[in-house]
Design a binder for these strands. Structure first.
Lengths: 219, 219
DNA sequence: GTCTATAAATCGATAGAC
DNA sequence: GTCTATCGATTTATAGAC
């Protein structure tokens, strides 16, 4: 059927535009990414891009929406299985690190752009905040499940904020060095210490990571 | 003297341009900040801006250099006084938080721009990396002094990286919420735990922040 | 050093044939 | 849905009077 072929071609073009636009915007930022750059990179003329998305902000909104759903799908589910806290934390951090590795344009898209000021459309601002809110909510529910903090929301909020800021900082580091990792090792130690500091019981770890002087360390 | 007056006026104009350009670039990013915006904001015509800095990249280089020297001047000196580790850490974190509060455009300038790609001049790339290298060096030397890690550079590197990433993450959070703080409290707990995890002796803290169940926490 | 005026290129966006 | 061609605005940068 001719119409079905046309629709399929349209959908493929839309995806191609979205992919290259996301790539370029996450690397150069929103303002520095021009329509002609996107057009040259994906092969389609500028008018086709405008037919699909209407405006440059329309492209940004669609790119951000796709990045959000893709990232949330890559992140581990909230309910992490595991017997004790330490084991749940390990699998949780492992999956977060995987998502971090496989999803290079996470925070970059949120920052490198900064339409977020004055002359941004309501749809763009909304999409911008949706992205952030989704991450915050996911982090809070995840650490709450890992550490069993249903009845202590302030603690899970602090641990979630801590985790997200560490991930954001790693994303910033990746700005300079593309190979910068998330370093879940130190993050694990820090989260356990923070939980213990707030009196969260952690079975099997009487005093977090204790040190027998001269026997620990890696020197 | 007429020549001295002219020189003084020139220096004042240069400073005004640099100030407004830094403000605008840290808020909108490099690409989204136009010469006409700077001109309108500081009152001087575009040609004066070009007379002082030659090009848009020239403005960026100068803005970044000024931001770097200002931030390094605001950061606490490497040699932190104090009797024990805990006390040195407290004063250190307090001064870092002060610098963070008083210096709103720290990381933003490094990110919101992203000339850092392909078509950036060598001077811009060099200034960009100088800024980052200065921060990394300062952090390493500072935590080394605070925790007494002269003979364990791997540990001081990890603690420094951890601290910088936390600060970067807080800067990202400030992108969304201008009131976002650095939260040195959790950072303090985390750094002490990391040091203890690597076998760094911390006098007066046998087991970092230990918890007597039900007696600690803030609930 | 500062100004007005403007060149040359590129930007976002649109018209209309196919 | 995709293409060529183009409009109008804005951008970086410069020329030259003062």
């Amino acid at each position: 059927m001719t119409q079905a072929q046309a629709e399929d071609r349209g959908a493929r073009s839309r995806d191609a535009i979205l992919g290259t636009a996301g790539e370029l915007m996450s690397r150069h930022g929103y303002a520095a990414t021009s329509i002609s750059m996107i057009s040259a990179a994906c092969g389609l003329p500028a008018s086709s891009i405008y037919w699909h998305f209407g405006s440059k902000e329309g492209i940004y909104v669609a790119v951000l929406e796709r990045a959000r759903t893709a990232l949330l799908a890559a992140l581990p589910p909230v309910a992490v299985p595991g017997a004790d806290v330490a084991r749940r934390l390990d699998t949780f951090l492992q999956e977060v690190e995987d998502a971090y590795q496989r999803h290079p344009h996470g925070v970059k898209l949120l920052m490198g752009l900064s339409i977020v000021q004055q002359d941004a459309s309501a749809a763009a601002v909304a999409q911008f905040h949706d992205y952030r809110d989704a991450l915050v909510t996911w982090a809070q529910e995840s650490v709450s499940a890992v550490f069993g903090l249903r009845d202590r929301p302030e603690v899970s909020d602090e641990l979630a904020r801590f985790t997200l800021r560490m991930a954001s900082g790693a994303a910033v580091a990746r700005w300079f060095d593309p190979d910068a990792a998330l370093e879940t090792g130190p993050l694990r130690v820090a989260l356990l210490a923070l939980a213990a500091h707030h009196g969260v019981p952690i079975p099997g770890t009487p005093c977090q990571a204790h040190h027998s002087p001269g026997a620990t360390g890696r020197n």
